[in-house]
Design a protein around this nucleic acid. Structure first.
Length: 119
RNA sequence: AGAGCAAAUCGGCUUAUCGCUUUUUAAAGAGGAAAGUCCGGGCAGCACAGAGCAUCACACUUCCUAACGGGAAGGUCCUGAUUUAUUGGGAACAGAAAGUGCCACAGAAAAUAAACUUCCUGUAUUGUUACAGGUAAAGGUGAAAAGGUGGGGUAAGAGCCUACCGCUUUUUUGGUGACAAAAGAGGCAAGGUAAACCUUGUGAGCUGAAAGACCAAGUAUAUCGAGAAUUGAGGGCUGCUCGCCUGAUCUCGAAGGGUAGGUCGUUUGAUCCUAACUGCAAAGCUAGGGCAAGAUAAAUGAUAGGCGGUUGAUUUGUUAUUCAAGUCUCCUUACAGAACCCGGCUUAUGAUUUGCUCUUUUU
């Protein structure tokens, strides 16, 4: 099974990010806030992802890197949850809005629950 | 045994699976502080007739360095230890006889000295005492009281005189120098504070990779209102003034239009490692070898083992408090993530070793 997670799957353009934050739907699922929006655009990828850990919760860059890597790892291993839609591209932002560092296992279970709410 | 300080070294290695970034498709991939952004430089752009003022930084000496507010060696002062001439630690260490300001409380007096209690002399008075003069040794206050101690001297005293010490100053000698030593002179004049203003000396053009160069895409030197202007607007010389250069548009408001993507800069450099030589050292120099992350809403990760390290327990052997081996268990970590690049400083922090200091226990 393909578990790769390439650069194309990331949301990088500033315009697209602004649009997502202004018009996307929000789901709160502790400890995450998920913002998503379906865009009818011709792209080769099924979704584009943005992971964010606010600076005010984690002052040190090491902690922010730790959480972002773990969230990305969970998404990479469960890509098929987001790949179900066929002709549209899903723009999605995952915000970690909690001020305590969680273990990998807890992040995995909580995030999977949150992602299921989208469907 | 514990704590503190200083110095040195290290900051794991490896296999499998699934991934990420770069790319020559086979390899490589966070640190000693990558951190704070506190100094210094490279690099880049703008400026580069000049003068004055202001501002900022630094401040014992010599040296190192691309440079520094960094480092090395040394001097002076303060301070701890003992073996009393050695050694450890500390210092915003130029100027207080250029000027101005300040010195709380206490105290008589806090700076052109002064005179509370004393001491001494004279006059008045029965006496207590009062007045005038001399004096600054004694008392008391304070962080600090106008050289200190001994002797002489005196009515009592005073550098008034003298010896030693201190201070100021001159000369000589030694040292590249800070400075040190010796000899002579002065007769004591000069309180502290510059981490108060200030003075002196030295240095500094401004900005900062969001610098800057190029490519691609796209547009509106457009419209309306008000004001200024070839009788010099505006701009530049970078905080200000003078002065100089340039020479037709500029300022404010209203309502709007477009872009915000990529490449270079960017990792071969005051580079790293090893060895010899020079130097007390910081460091320099020569030879040989190496190429070592380049991301950009920002890669260097996840899971499971092994080695190694380590906490505790236990078994066996042995010189029983020691050492070695095995088994089980725990952890695999502290501080912390490159953002143009270097040299420093500062701060954070785990382990080991060495040295010094302190505390406790045992003998």
């Amino acid at each position: 099974m393909d578990q790769s997670f390439q650069k194309e799957l990331r949301l990088t353009h500033k315009k697209e990010i602004d649009k997502l934050f202004s018009s996307g739907k929000r789901i709160k699922s502790h400890p995450f806030i998920i913002i998503y929006n379906e865009v009818s655009q011709k792209t080769e990828v099924p979704f584009k992802l943005l992971i964010s850990v606010p600076k005010r919760n984690f002052k040190k860059a090491v902690d922010r890197n730790y959480l972002k890597r773990r969230v990305r790892e969970v998404v990479r291993k469960n890509k098929e949850l987001l790949s179900s839609k066929s002709d549209k591209t899903l723009h999605i932002a995952i915000l970690y809005s909690f001020n305590i560092k969680l273990e990998y296992n807890k992040i995995e279970t909580n995030l999977l629950e949150a992602l299921k709410k989208i469907q």
